[in-house]
Write a protein that binds this DNA or RNA. Structure first.
Length: 646
RNA sequence: GUGCCUGUAGCUCAGUUGGAUAGAGCGACGGCCUCCGGAGCCGUAGGUCGGAGGUUCGAAUCCUCUCAGGCACGCCA
């Protein structure tokens, strides 16, 4: 559809630009709300009529008279307030779509894109909020790669932050445990989930413990003593648990930049030099921030305010470190990490940063564009980080630093009760409660996935009794993944998800399993086609390359139904581009769902295998072949698998 | 207080950047297995798009005001 529109736009301009004052930007196409209004429409006459203060329908009529023949177009008509509706040559379009299968029309625009997502503090188990982040981030990555972009996925690990400090404190001071004890603890991320909440409560109740906590922080940051060793062991162990959890939803990473490496390699000191040299930050001599290094914020962020970057005691704030990291992503820091392998997933190495030099020849960063997937509460800080780049006159890089923001996942009062929590005082009347690791309040990612798997397993057993347990478990895991990923994607990113267990566990209606089921059934049709008639997928590919289909052999009702599927499928690539541009992957989700609905309705009504007329059978076969190819790819972009059966 | 976000069917949400009669799912009600898998299909009911002005051929969408809710604004991360 992208190519067709380009061709049409060119042809239109050629015929119109002499008489009318139009440029390429004016000609935009829209999809009519109903099939009877054609396949594509132009609102151009109404725009021109506005400029000329003329009657839109008359302008439309005049334009129509000049457009006798357009490529791929069967006929045109003026409709409504002044639309020009375009009816495509359906069979020609269908053939072109089949022939174009496997030949993407999208082109990459960037040299290299870095996407940072997941970024879970390595001190406790992952929860549903982290799942939303990873689903959005990983889907962005898949879409960018489908567009042909070179993408590097980074998962930032704050292994020296206060959250890890709390767990170290808990282990040493409350549990009297050492490094040697860690190995004996099962489900370590779950253990830390509880310990972290317990420690946070203890620290709140015992202010006298603060000096010890501060000491632990200092030692971890400078890499000294048993505290630092313990922090390292804890964060690596939790990190492995997080990677396991994320592999359940098929999210993957290329490199894990650690805060410990940023500290060890003095990235901040380098960024500090740059900022001082270029006047990006200045020392406040008086006022409330006396003795601090501050960055002035422009009007559009926060009028006439300054943000402390270096505290009066000389330590750097979180934003400062983040500026250094963002500079590194663009290759602007003039420093680099060392790397070592951390894990292998699906034959790919996940690298982790280290401050200890080695001779491994790998390199990351140096991006031309960066997406940071972080929830909306960090908007203010993200703006400040990008302002840091501007303060260094890296305008281009600041402009290509994108905050992919999204609303958080909260808990409904009902699910709170489910988890055994009483509503805190002052929160009784609230319609939702924020997930809080510090309070131990939340649904753990693995618990939710387990729940989904158990339900899926029961459903599979019901439908396919006697499957080998391994097969059933594999299918159940795939269904769980599909259900979760679709659930996290179907909401617009600005929409606060108030987590509802029943809704998340639903497999009917607008859900991942519904889409998967559609694809599974399509596969089943083609499998039977091969078993019974020997039509292999290679034959289908050959037939698609040189299609001999004719929609004219279908009766009107079926022709319209199949045509809707063809047109919908043809919009797939636009949908990818649009989803990336708006960072709104609910569009992609909705696209796949709508296509599934049409396909489901179609094959319910029109059988392929039982059709006697070979011409009709061929059209149906190739129509569903097209739909299957597009649906399968759309599901893959969302990280939703297609099981062999379900 | 300032900034950002949200308000659409009983519930949960879409709405392609201003287009044609505002759409899905769930729930409710009524149908559909001689036929490629019923996690499915078909149908019915359900709307003053928070409210009031404005912009124009045309507004759920843009502007102003207003009501309600949320988030952010630290020498925490």
């Amino acid at each position: 559809m992208i190519r067709l529109k380009e061709d049409l736009r060119k042809a239109l301009l050629e015929k119109l630009e002499k008489t009318y004052d139009v440029s390429a930007g004016d000609v935009d196409f829209l999809y009519p709300p109903q099939p009877k209004f054609g396949d594509i429409a132009l609102s151009l006459p109404m725009q021109l009529a506005k400029k000329r203060r003329a009657n839109p329908r008359e302008v439309a009529g005049q334009i129509l008279a000049r457009l006798e023949v357009l490529p791929g177009v069967e006929r045109l008509e003026v409709a409504g307030a002044g639309f020009i509706n375009i009816f495509l040559d359906k069979t020609a379009f269908f053939r072109a779509r089949l022939a174009a299968l496997g030949r993407p029309a999208l082109v990459p625009e960037e040299r290299k894109i870095v996407v940072e997502h997941t970024n879970i503090n390595p001190n406790k188990a992952a929860h549903i909020g982290h799942l939303r982040n990873a689903c959005l981030g990983d889907t962005l990555v898949r879409c960018l790669r489908a567009k042909g972009e070179t993408v590097e996925v980074q998962n930032y690990i704050d292994d020296t932050g206060v959250q890890v400090v709390d767990v170290v404190f808990g282990l040493m001071e409350l549990e009297s445990k050492t490094r040697n004890d860690l190995g004996k603890i099962e489900k370590f991320d779950y253990y830390c989930w509880d310990l972290y909440a317990r420690t946070a409560a203890y620290l709140d109740a015992h202010p006298e413990a603060q000096p010890r906590k501060a000491e632990i922080l200092r030692r971890i940051e400078s890499g000294e003593g048993p505290e630092a060793a313990l922090a390292h062991d804890i964060s690596r162990r939790i990190l492995r648990a997080h990677l396991e959890t994320m592999s359940r939803i098929d999210a993957s990473y290329d490199v894990l930049p650690c805060e410990s490496s940023i500290l060890g390699l003095k990235f901040w000191e380098r960024a500090f030099e740059l900022l001082k040299d270029k006047g990006g930050i200045e020392r406040a001599e008086d006022g409330p921030n006396a003795g601090c290094w501050v960055m002035r914020l422009p009007e559009d962020i926060d009028k006439d305010r300054e943000k402390v970057i270096v505290r009066s005691d000389g330590t750097v704030t979180y934003v400062g470190k983040d500026i250094a990291y963002q500079l590194w992503k663009f290759g602007l820091l003039e420093r680099d990490f060392s790397y070592e392998p951390f894990a292998e997933k699906k034959g790919r190495t996940i690298w982790i940063t280290t401050s200890v030099p080695n001779d491994r020849a790998v390199s990351f960063g140096r991006a031309s564009k960066v997406y940071n997937v972080i929830d909306v509460r960090q908007s203010y800080l993200q703006k400040i980080v990008y302002q840091g780049l501007r303060a260094l006159h890296f305008e281009a890089q600041a402009a290509k630093s994108l905050h992919f923001s999204y609303e958080m996942v909260a808990l409904s009062p009902r699910s709170l009760g489910h988890l055994g929590f009483e509503p805190a005082k002052g929160e009784t009347g609230k319609s939702f409660v924020e997930v809080s690791g510090r309070k131990g309040l939340g649904v753990k990612a693995d618990d939710l996935l387990d729940l989904l798997e158990r339900k899926a397993s029961a459903e599979v057993e019901k439908r396919h009794p006697g499957l080998p347990p391994e097969t059933r478990h594999r299918i159940a895991a795939e269904i769980a993944r599909g259900a979760l990923r679709y659930y996290m994607l179907k909401f617009a990113r600005n929409s606060l998800i108030i987590f509802d267990v029943d809704e998340a566990l639903s497999f009917e209606g607008e859900t991942g399993p519904y889409l998967m089921y559609t694809a599974v059934r399509l596969n089943s049709i083609f499998r039977k086609l091969e078993e019974r008639e020997g039509v292999a997928s290679a034959d289908l590919v050959r037939r698609a390359a040189d299609p001999a289909v004719d929609l004219g052999v279908l009766k009107a009702g079926e022709k319209a139904a199949l045509w809707e599927i063809i047109v919908a499928a043809a919009q797939f690539e636009e949908e990818i581009v649009h989803s990336i541009a708006s960072l709104e992957f609910s569009h992609l989700a909705k696209f796949a769902f709508t296509l599934s609905q049409k396909v489901n309705a179609y094959y319910h009504k029109h059988t392929v295998l039982g059709e006697a007329d070979p011409a009709v059978k061929n059209v149906r076969t190739m129509g569903l072949h097209l739909a299957r190819a597009v649906l399968t790819e759309a599901l893959d972009l969302m990280g939703i698998p297609v099981p062999e059966k379900m």
